[in-house]
Simulated assay, not measured.
Amino acid sequence: MPDEQTPRRPGRPREESAERALLEATVELLLEHDDPGKVTITAVTERAGVARATLYRRWDSREELIAAALDVEREVPRVPDTGDLAADLTSWYGPTEFSGDDPAVHRLFRARLVQAVNNPELRRVYWENHVRIRREPLLERVRAEVARGGLPSGTDVEAFVELLSGVGYYQFLVRPDDGLGLDRIHRAVRLLMSAAS
């Protein structure tokens, strides 16, 4: 463990500040433009006031930078384990960006969809670096249910979570918000559990 008197390495706070500035600039550009082509390295570095070399010390590509910006301030969610799988999985959808009234949050979520549809490489990077990691707690919760016998041993956990995710996206992106989205997700989980059995 380093001695408490050891001075902080020079330049580190500046690097962190530059990273924040680059992410903030990227988010601003994503929210301003529907055209993914407008979010360029040049536009980001000029908006952030940061050199391109600094950007490339942190991210290897434009896609990695955009993926990081699309996920800024998001955390890997924790799925509770109360013993009631339907309630636990339903509660996971409560505090997501699907819900709430912040228009910037909703616009950033739409930007994720637009960017991913228009850029297959970004979709791959975003999946590998962000979505796949956030999805793991859902998989773990369903695996735990299988292990304790709440679902049959042959349950296809990947397919279960894929179907559940599809229901969630449909409720919050396709249907008008009538306040019943979480109830429909809860019913869908119950139906999936029944079908798996």
Rank of each mutant, 00 (worst) to 15 (best):
Met1Gly: 14
Pro10Leu: 11
Glu15Pro: 05
Ala18Leu: 05
Glu19Cys: 10
Arg20His: 06
Leu22Tyr: 04
Thr26Ile: 04
Thr26Pro: 10
Glu28Phe: 03
Leu29Ile: 08
Leu29Ser: 12
Leu30Val: 07
Asp35His: 13
Val39Ala: 09
Thr45Glu: 03
Ala48Ile: 05
Gly49Pro: 01
Ala51Glu: 13
Ala51Val: 09
Ala51Asn: 14
Ala53Gln: 12
Leu55Tyr: 03
Trp59Tyr: 15
Arg62Asp: 00
Glu63His: 09
Glu64Pro: 01
Ile66Gln: 02
Ala67His: 03
Ala68Asn: 06
Glu75Val: 12
Glu75Met: 12
Glu75Thr: 11
Val76Phe: 07
Pro77Ile: 06
Ser91Asn: 08
Trp92Asp: 05
Pro95Gln: 00
Glu97Val: 04
Asp101Ser: 13
Ala104Gln: 11
Ala104Trp: 02
His106Thr: 04
Phe109Ile: 01
Phe109Asn: 07
Arg110Pro: 01
Arg112Asn: 07
Val114Thr: 14
Val114Lys: 10
Ala116Glu: 05
Val125Pro: 01
Arg132Cys: 15
Arg135Tyr: 14
Pro137Phe: 13
Leu139Lys: 14
Val142Cys: 14
Val142Glu: 07
Arg143Thr: 12
Ala144His: 09
Ala144Asp: 06
Ala147Tyr: 00
Gly149Leu: 02
Thr155Leu: 11
Asp156Ile: 10
Val157Glu: 12
Val157Thr: 13
Val161Ala: 11
Ser165Cys: 07
Ser165Leu: 12
Gly168Val: 06
Leu173Gly: 06
Pro176Gly: 13
Leu180Gly: 13
Gly181Asn: 00
Ile185Glu: 00
His186Asp: 06
Arg187Pro: 07
Arg190Thr: 13
Leu191Asn: 12
Met193Tyr: 05
Ser194Phe: 15
Ser197Asp: 11
